[in-house]
Nucleic acid binder design. Structure first.
Lengths: 194, 194, 194, 194
DNA sequence: CATGAATGAGCTTTCATTCAT
DNA sequence: CATGAATGAAAGCTCATTCAT
């Protein structure tokens, strides 16, 4: 691994553990085995490394992955949603540090960088909303919901995992996303009237 | 309002806006109309004010309020849950600054203080879990769920609101908690087989 | 002398000796017998102390002093000029550090502060120009000169002293300003044709 | 232009614009189109480039040029002085950056280098003093002046131009040196008694 | 010749905290 | 009670310089 990546990795874990502002460049450098001056050889400022981390995580590959699911019309909306929830929970568990930074480091970026990240985030959410919309239009899902609130509910359920889920613990992402899916999709489905 | 409370309020809003570490005692003092030296008359350290805020929010009144609902056996588990979700969303919207500090300021406290807060938080969650358990035992709710995951899903849905809900915006807490309740409780209910 | 003044004095002499940028706040503080933190108790930034020095020197008392000479019509323009040159040289020799900062520290100030200082400087020069103009109008001085160039020549002659005059050396300000006056005023006077 | 000269030129203009200490080797290198490492191939340290600039300007050609004037005995002392003042003002206007560095960069050199430069500067001034001495000895100039003060007055007048003269402005060096010459030489001449 | 990675010392500034008054 | 002077540690960052390639 090259020095630049060592610095990125060191920063990633420290930002996750202690937060952006509580992490000093001193610590990042030490963690990467470089001098403080060395840090600035690769990143013009502390803020830039935060942005680099945001970008490296919220890469388009994630968007592509979920888009592929959303466009696969061999699947029903409910099945799509199940897969998306799987993907979401799995990604969160496997990339906890990135997720924490993604959601809580945003406010430490400059206006224009925030805009860039927020746009990507919104394109991401839109894919979920679209699938829910499909389910409603097909008559599978209840039609008296505000799609926006529903999607926020879904993201809350999934994203909150980083607050309580111990990646070293016994629960697997699969168990969790199964429960989430059943709960959420059943909640969404129209009741089958007797 | 006495000086101590003025300091607490000033700190509360600054911690919410800028975060604990990004807020200086200088600013807190100015916001409260005291000198920097004055601050230390009321709180032995910056950290103590954070703890004071945590305690003042997670006071037992909240616990009492939701316990009263949980113990009111005129209500079915589903009805109880609806009321609890209402309470949760409403509390979050009306006390956003406290909530933010409650969830994200925790890591800035010392070990022993963290323990005190976490215990209260767990007693709170236990009330929700108990109601869900009642619903399962009564045969209303599905019985193939891990209660812990279900309650985490519920809290995620509700707590995440502070990440997206604009208290000045057009959506009312009522709208949101209604959607959340319907979604969640329907998801929980056993399907009525045809 | 109070702490603030000690800091100002320490800075004044260091800025003179080594220049603004080559002087660290560390050194200023040490020279004043304060901690580095103490410096910032009195001045919000390094730049502010430079401005404070500029202002404390280019106070209006200087302007008033030379204006009094310029307006005293018991004196001929030549006599006024002699007195002004005396004042100029004397002030420069007695306040060398201030003068150096006044002329060479200007570029380190922010735009708006530069403007404030430059205005005062121009009001100062205008008084000299006015006296020269009087001499021309009275027919004492040559009338084929650009007053602006003449006044710049005068200031060059006088101000350059800080580059070569050793205040501890044997030459007195009086000697120097006498030579300057005779040289300059004779050069200005119309030749008495034979 | 070879790389070494490109570096020198880049440094010259940056030192003039921003001062020696405010200019980084980074900037000099960029301005010259070399890498930072490349800089150190041509100059062992930042200070050496300053000295190189001093030397390259205060080269002996200037000394030779004015010496030629001083030794040309077809000219009267007054005529010599006029030509010297012309040369001085013209050189200053055409080489402002060098002049600034020459006068204000001196303090950033080491003791021994300062000595070398100061000696050259003094040989330069001595030529002016010699011409003034000739004028006195020939009975043209007043004999009650300290030659040293007079020559400093002359240099002050001429050198100060870099503080106020805009090379892009409307005034030509010729206009200025004419005024300076008339002013100074008339001031120096004995009055023609009626 | 030339590069750019890497260093270490130093800079300005912030800030929680102490303490004499 | 309350102030504000004063401190010391640490922060983010700059920069001249060295050196392996």
């Amino acid at each position: 691994m090259n020095t630049r990546d060592k610095i990125l990795e060191s920063a990633l874990h420290l930002f996750d553990e202690k937060g952006y502002h509580q992490t000093s460049i001193q610590e990042i450098s030490e963690g990467a085995g470089v001098s403080k001056g060395g840090f600035f050889h690769y990143f013009p400022s502390k803020n830039d490394i935060l942005f680099a981390l945001q970008e490296s995580f919220c890469i388009d590959s994630h968007l592509n992955n979920i888009e592929k699911v959303a466009l696969n019309d061999d699947l029903s909306p409910a099945e799509k949603l199940h897969k998306l929830i799987d993907y979401e929970v799995y990604t969160h568990v496997k990339n906890r540090p990135n997720v924490v930074i993604f959601y809580h480091g945003l406010k430490n970026l400059s206006e224009d960088k925030i805009k860039i990240i927020k746009e990507k985030r919104d394109r991401y959410e839109e894919i979920f909303r679209k699938v829910i919309r499909q389910g409603i239009e097909r008559g599978d899902f209840k039609d008296d919901f505000d799609i926006n609130i529903v999607s926020k509910a879904l993201f809350g359920m999934c994203n909150w995992t980083y607050m309580w889920l111990d990646p070293e613990g016994p629960m697997t992402p699969g168990q969790i996303s199964d429960t989430f899916s059943k709960l959420f999709i059943d909640g969404l489905h129209k009741k089958r009237e007797a």
